[in-house]
Simulated assay, not measured.
Amino acid sequence: MTKRRYFIRAGEVPGYHPANHVGTLNRRLIGRETVGAEQLEVLLGVIEKGKGALPHAHPGIEQVCYMLEGRARAEVAGEVCELGPGDCCFFPPDQQHTFTVLSDEPVKVLVIYAPPYEENPDRVIRPA
């Protein structure tokens, strides 16, 4: 039997480049494969200057972004906001959104999905 881990160090989690994002490296901290979480997913994203998420939405999935470092511009449902450390935003299910780094330094952002997104192509809607 494999011992389950409940404590995660970001540097021990492999990074990946998410679909529909540019200049982004994510690490899935909390998920099925790390701790067995089934109802939510937590990622650490590092995004380069001027890069980010292209317009898209997640059917049936809520998303929260909590800013750790840097500055970014988020847009959802016609609302636009500049975010910095300590700020967060909510992307409702099925609502198209974008996220773009404004600062010279990379953005570090904690991203939470409920239910888990898991980089499943069936869980993203891109504009036609």
Rank of each mutant, 00 (worst) to 15 (best):
residue 1 M to N: 01
residue 2 T to W: 03
residue 2 T to A: 06
residue 3 K to A: 09
residue 3 K to P: 00
residue 6 Y to M: 09
residue 9 R to A: 10
residue 10 A to R: 12
residue 10 A to V: 07
residue 11 G to Q: 13
residue 11 G to T: 07
residue 12 E to I: 00
residue 12 E to V: 00
residue 13 V to W: 05
residue 14 P to K: 07
residue 14 P to Q: 11
residue 15 G to T: 13
residue 15 G to V: 01
residue 15 G to K: 11
residue 16 Y to V: 01
residue 21 H to C: 11
residue 21 H to Y: 11
residue 24 T to E: 14
residue 25 L to K: 14
residue 25 L to S: 15
residue 26 N to P: 02
residue 27 R to C: 07
residue 28 R to D: 11
residue 28 R to S: 13
residue 33 E to D: 14
residue 39 Q to W: 14
residue 39 Q to T: 15
residue 39 Q to I: 10
residue 40 L to V: 07
residue 41 E to V: 00
residue 41 E to H: 05
residue 41 E to S: 06
residue 42 V to M: 10
residue 42 V to E: 06
residue 44 L to C: 06
residue 44 L to D: 12
residue 46 V to A: 15
residue 46 V to G: 14
residue 47 I to Y: 09
residue 50 G to F: 13
residue 50 G to D: 14
residue 51 K to F: 11
residue 51 K to Y: 10
residue 52 G to D: 12
residue 52 G to R: 08
residue 53 A to E: 10
residue 54 L to N: 08
residue 56 H to W: 06
residue 56 H to V: 03
residue 56 H to M: 05
residue 58 H to L: 10
residue 58 H to G: 11
residue 60 G to D: 13
residue 60 G to E: 14
residue 61 I to R: 12
residue 62 E to S: 15
residue 62 E to H: 15
residue 67 M to A: 05
residue 67 M to N: 08
residue 68 L to C: 01
residue 69 E to T: 04
residue 69 E to W: 00
residue 70 G to Q: 03
residue 70 G to F: 00
residue 72 A to K: 05
residue 74 A to C: 06
residue 75 E to Y: 02
residue 78 G to D: 02
residue 81 C to H: 14
residue 81 C to Q: 15
residue 82 E to L: 05
residue 82 E to D: 14
residue 83 L to N: 02
residue 86 G to K: 00
residue 89 C to D: 02
residue 89 C to S: 08
residue 91 F to E: 07
residue 91 F to H: 05
residue 92 P to A: 02
residue 93 P to G: 01
residue 93 P to C: 03
residue 94 D to Q: 00
residue 95 Q to T: 07
residue 99 F to Q: 04
residue 101 V to E: 05
residue 102 L to C: 07
residue 102 L to N: 08
residue 102 L to V: 02
residue 103 S to T: 01
residue 103 S to H: 02
residue 105 E to G: 01
residue 107 V to H: 09
residue 108 K to E: 15
residue 109 V to M: 13
residue 109 V to D: 13
residue 110 L to G: 11
residue 110 L to F: 13
residue 111 V to Q: 12
residue 111 V to I: 14
residue 112 I to R: 06
residue 113 Y to I: 04
residue 113 Y to R: 09
residue 115 P to D: 11
residue 119 E to W: 04
residue 120 N to A: 10
residue 120 N to F: 05
residue 120 N to K: 12
residue 120 N to I: 08
residue 125 I to P: 04
residue 126 R to P: 00
residue 128 A to L: 10
